[in-house]
Design a protein around this nucleic acid. Structure first.
Length: 225
DNA sequence: ATATCGATTATCT
DNA sequence: GATAATCGATATG
């Protein structure tokens, strides 16, 4: 029960309210930048994983040709039509899990895809989960830079996390905020999609080393301060 | 730095 | 049977 001497960031993290997610995906995506994703330890010996959200993409629901909700509600994408703030986890290319959070009010689809994180705590465990050997700071992006990578680092799977409530600290996987203030962001086209690829719906923390995609996707777009 | 390709499975046509 | 919101390895400039 007592958290002993927690990391400074530990004590300060508060879960986001469900109303945060009950809005259109563009606003949720933009405001998720700088928030943190937390995985509670599986047992008393486990480590809490904490990482800052540095890259996300908005998917606009049934009207967005790139969204899983485009063809309407199915068994697979049902979470997208459910209440906001829940995890939608899918398996892609036979290899990778990807994490989304549902947005909009219940009955209306919409989501934000998590694409990259900056590790803050539990780095050793992330490296273990990824099968990566750390030799220096240059190896850190291999842990959480990319949607499949960050999911693997956090042990996210469909069976374990799909439908989970990301506003609940009791859920094990949740989203919170600390005292961090976002300095600058950019908006670019989305990565790795074949439909509606030109729409500016990818949000990144400007200059952050953990953003995925390479230089090609990190220019063009709207910079703000 | 950019391009190509194989891995491997849930889902839909 | 085709496709996909990816990654890592490999090849080449």
């Amino acid at each position: 029960m007592p958290q002993s001497k927690t990391l400074p960031s530990d004590r300060a993290i508060q879960p986001l309210d469900r109303s945060f997610f009950a809005r259109n995906p563009r606003r949720v995506a933009r405001e998720l930048l700088g928030k943190v994703l937390v995985r509670n330890p599986a047992d008393s010996k486990g480590t809490r994983l904490i990482a800052r959200i540095v890259e996300v993409e908005a998917y606009l629901g049934e009207k967005d040709p790139a969204a899983h909700a485009f063809a309407g509600r199915t068994l697979r994408n049902a979470v997208l039509f459910g209440p906001p703030g829940h995890a939608y986890v899918y398996f892609i290319y036979g290899n990778h899990y990807c994490l989304n959070v549902s947005c909009e009010i219940e009955g209306k689809a919409g989501s934000v895809l998590f694409r990259a994180l900056e590790p803050m705590a539990g780095i050793e465990q992330m490296a273990l989960a990824r099968g990566v050997e750390l030799h220096g700071p240059k190896d850190l992006p291999k842990l959480t830079s990319g949607p499949g990578r960050m999911a693997q680092a956090f042990g996210i799977t469909r069976g374990r996390d799909n439908e989970g409530d990301l506003t609940s600290q009791a859920n094990g996987l949740w989203i919170g905020q600390d005292s961090y203030r976002t300095r600058g962001i950019a908006v670019t086209r989305r990565i790795g999609i074949t439909h509606a690829a030109e729409m500016p719906l990818r949000y990144i923390l400007l200059g952050n080393a953990f953003v995925s995609g390479g230089a090609k996707y990190n220019r063009s777009g709207t910079a703000t301060s």
